[in-house]
Write a protein that binds this DNA or RNA. Sequence first.
DNA 1: GTCTATAAATCGATAGAC
DNA 2: GTCTATCGATTTATAGAC
Lengths: 208, 208
Amino acid sequence: MAKVSFREQVLRVREDAIVASVNRLLAEKGFDNMTVDEVAADVGIAKASLYKHFSSKEELAGAAMIRVLEQAQALMASLPAGAPAVDQLKAVARWTMQVQLAGEMPSLPAQNSTLRAALMANKPYLDRLMEVSDQLGAWIGAAQTAGDLNPRLPPEVVLYTLFARACDPVLSLLKVSGQHSDEQIIEMLLSTCFDGLSGQTSTTKSPS
Amino acid sequence: MAKVSFREQVLRVREDAIVASVNRLLAEKGFDNMTVDEVAADVGIAKASLYKHFSSKEELAGAAMIRVLEQAQALMASLPAGAPAVDQLKAVARWTMQVQLAGEMPSLPAQNSTLRAALMANKPYLDRLMEVSDQLGAWIGAAQTAGDLNPRLPPEVVLYTLFARACDPVLSLLKVSGQHSDEQIIEMLLSTCFDGLSGQTSTTKSPS
DNA sequence: GTCTATAAATCGATAGAC
DNA sequence: GTCTATCGATTTATAGAC
């Protein structure tokens, strides 16, 4: 029998609530404009109590990133194993856009150096990031071999592009314009991502 | 004879130096992590003197955005008028990527509400933004009519996508990886932007 | 572990002399 | 207009009682 006591489970539930709040606030305001006071108020505890669970604001962001990476891993594991690799990649891209439209994709500024340093020293985060990258990398290679992805593109470029589409500002711009449904937005951006603005090849329709 | 005195010209040169510093610092650290103290130190004047020229940090950012929009207008005006519209769009996209790789593309977080409010009240900025959007919109429509851009995409989506590629994090990710030259990075991202990750249509090579 | 209260540092913006 | 000096507000993080 495991040593997971009742008290530890309560602790775990509370920390999950904290990370969920951080995740939502990061998506809404970004790392720089999110304050620890807001997080504490949103969870409903005192700020000093928050710091008993997480030792810094950067660690809060790291925990939120670990959360989404684990959700991504769960999604990837749930995909049908036999499908073409390019379809797996599209499914992941679609999921990241859904998360973003739902206001649950944490956005971390690439320019904040203290945050970057903290994340690069966060081993649990780096481990998840590596695992997700490896799985995506395998699919990218397979899709290029199958001729479904441009084989002249370095896999690195494809990987970075997919990550970048998970926080593409185009999504929120189109959402606030209010002229398209969430599903329409996602399908259009999937089309521009895989088939480009020129769009000679179609993912959903045959040329007829 | 104009009333532009020597003193006004000195003032203008100094403000140009301020905006150039702001532009570089915005590209390097982003709006939230750029401090007015840094700007003053970079220009070599006291912070109080800076505030005699620009009344707030948001106005500094607006001036930097006006600067790049005017540079974009100058580039667009210099393009050969007879070329296909899609080539004009690619030329603009290429230029924005060059600016970004040169570390001179200011990056403004979309989530900072006070900054957004200030920009939306900044008429000179909005005017330039509208002019640039109109010129790009005309080219987008022409390229769609010519069959060089996917006609099923709303022009709005194409416009937003082009703006977003001007601050695409993929560029800096690839640059720090150090495996490709600036020219290679730009050509690859132009390819993924217009032809997609699938890349069945080629902009630079015939299928052969 | 949770709280109140506060330390310590940063930053945008201004006062006032020259 | 430029400077030095400082205000006032915000924010990360901690001290110490319970």
